[in-house]
């Protein structure tokens, strides 16, 4: 099956590969996987707590070219977005941008799940901090 040029570009030159310290309170980590193909995707966001803007995003994906491209594209899109804007990213946006064929749509779903999981993790962390601050007050 032929990959689109955009998939190939992300696959050959993946953006933002790497990781942040997941114990950093400003970092949200999303880890998702698909049992059929054994893909695992880790996506992290680093949020500016004052503005709620995602300043940086990194990923590492083990999986097919489409899974790597989907998560690479996701990190590009995440940078500069607020946490709420990030949650509005839909897998169909990724499908359209990368021209993914129907059999690879699950890769874009995985990327959307990873974004949601990362934001969710970040939100949980900030809630915890707020509660402990209130408890101290």
């Amino acid at each position: 099956m032929a990959y689109s040029d955009k998939v190939l570009d992300h696959y050959n030159n993946p953006r933002n590969v790497g990781s942040f310290d997941k114990s950093d309170p400003n970092v949200g980590t999303g880890m998702v996987g698909a049992p059929e193909c054994g893909d695992v995707m880790k996506l992290q966001v680093k949020v500016n707590p004052a503005t709620g803007v995602i300043e940086d995003a990194k990923f590492k994906t083990f999986g097919c070219g489409s899974a790597i491209a989907s998560s690479s594209l996701a990190t590009e899109w995440l940078r500069g977005k607020t946490v709420d804007e990030a949650l509005a990213i839909k897998n169909t946006d990724i499908v359209n941008e990368l021209s993914l064929p129907p059999v690879k749509i699950h890769c874009s779903v995985l990327a959307e799940d990873a974004i949601k999981a990362a934001i969710d993790d970040y939100k949980k962390k900030t809630e915890k901090v707020e509660t402990s601050v209130q408890a101290q007050a």
Partner: peptide
Amino acid sequence: SKDAPPELLEEVFDLNMALE
């Protein structure tokens, strides 16, 4: 369903790193 078991993901990720 085809949900991956979340309790294993961390370990699977490390395993994939070692494979690489």
